[in-house]
Amino acid sequence: MTEKILRSKVVVWTLLVLPGLWPLWPIFIRPDPSVTADPFKYVLHHWGFVACLVLAVVLAFSPLRVLWPKWGVAQALNRHRRLVGVAAFVYAALHLSTHLIYEGGLDLAAIPATLKTALGKPFQLTGLIAFTILSVLAGTSVKAAIKWLGGKLWKNIHRLAYVAAALAAYHQAAARKLFPMQVVWIFGPLLILEIARVWKQRQPASGVK
């Protein structure tokens, strides 16, 4: 049943779009003064959070399939890898655009200066590099790109997603004055799955029927 639902593109699209719309609730529908005090900061953080979450989720698809190859849910999820991966890029792009617009106080002419500041600060630079990687991956996500680059090169390029995840985890942790446990909840399970996957792939093949 679950796998049938998860096979549906409409369901996956809905699951990807809804979290991005969440800020409408505390800003407009049931205004929360702690959010309306600085609504764009809230949106900035929220979209960054969703970008990290979606990235961690899409990276979990493949280890899930390796660990439980016969599990229908894992198979269903892997059909949507490209869509979910592109969604992570879209949220990262929304997050960065909010930063660029807001940091300059709506002044578009201030964007180059804001980018220059970002290059000089490891906290901001890591986020920027992670975004650049996601842009390359999104740009090469079309079928034609696989043909053009060749499967092996394409695959190696797309392994950069793990680098992006590590940078995003650092970036998210450094966004607060104290270490936010959120980072552990988002990226911790992924790390465990990846370790399990590597461990399983190193097992001698003899045990497999």
Partner: peptide, 21 residues
């Protein structure tokens, strides 16, 4: 004098919407 992670050149105004000064 910047904070190592962000700039202190300007500030967001609480309750000021998009306002920055």
């Amino acid at each position: 004098v910047d904070h190592p992670r962000w700039t202190q050149a300007s500030e967001r105004v609480i309750g000021g919407g998009l306002g920055r000064q």
